[in-house]
């Protein structure tokens, strides 16, 4: 694995001033939206830690007032709750750090399932505001690809967001990864499948026109093929040259 993505050198957008601005702005919007969501999650963990610490203080004041010893079992439980929230915040910060480093290199070899999973993890809170669940990525094998990780995450998020309007009645979006190799063994395709969607229809088409343009632009930039019109799924195909 780890073959070169064909046409990644097409990153040059010279002569396409407006498109370059759209792409940069879309990237900035994505970075901003995810950072705000991360900040909110951290604040929630801090708020719970703050209340647990406050409750410990309340209990000690009550025990002094009543001249009774502190309930050690209760104190231990509250300490455990605080440690759990610290772990939670630490996990969020780790995700934030991985996300922040996704802009370090224009092209990098990455584990595709990790990139997809990080995109889903970061987007879960935003999806939940629409009562939509993003199921964990379904992939049993490692897939290494060479790409721009941030642009790929941005593209994937735009595609998932466009799928919000097409989600099935159970409101659960599933993401699967699959790969296939051509008969001559020279070319391999990796598919990111966004599944459990309703059929694409004209109303989706009108509402999503601007977003779809951006998706196509990003897809071209990363040399990916995106099939948005499939019956109950969206398929992103990454063509690779096998070594």
């Amino acid at each position: 694995m780890g073959g070169q993505i064909e046409g990644l050198s097409k990153l040059d957008l010279e002569g396409k001033g407006l498109q370059r601005y759209d792409l940069q702005y879309s990237g900035l919007q994505y970075f901003g939206a995810m950072s705000a969501s991360i900040a909110h999650e951290i604040k929630n963990a801090l708020a719970i830690t703050n209340e647990n610490a406050g409750l410990l203080e309340d209990l000690s004041l009550i025990s002094i007032k009543n001249g009774q010893p502190l309930d050690s079992e209760r104190v231990a439980k509250l300490s455990k709750k605080m440690m759990d929230q610290i772990k939670r915040a630490d996990n969020i910060v780790k995700k934030m750090s991985r996300f922040a480093h996704s802009v370090d290199d224009p092209v990098k070899v990455v584990n595709l399932s990790e990139v997809v999973e990080l995109t889903l993890e970061l987007g879960r809170r935003s999806a939940s505001t629409k009562s939509i669940t993003l199921a964990p990525v379904c992939c049993d094998f490692p897939i290494s690809i060479e790409t721009n990780p941030f642009l790929l995450m941005n593209l994937l998020w735009l595609v998932i967001k466009s799928a919000f309007r097409r989600v099935n009645s159970d409101k659960k979006i599933e993401v699967e990864l699959s790969k296939s190799i051509s008969k001559d063994n020279k070319k391999g395709d990796v598919n990111i499948i966004i599944a459990n969607l309703l059929p694409y229809n004209l109303s989706c088409q009108c509402e999503e026109e601007n977003q779809k343009e951006l998706i196509i632009m990003l897809g071209n930039l990363l040399n990916l093929n995106i099939d948005m019109n499939s019956e109950d799924k969206i398929i992103i195909t990454i063509s690779q040259l096998t070594k």
Partner: peptide, 16 residues
Amino acid sequence: DETEFLEIMSERMQNR
């Protein structure tokens, strides 16, 4: 929507 927050905050408010 954070049930743990609800649980602790309500206990502290009830204490008051």
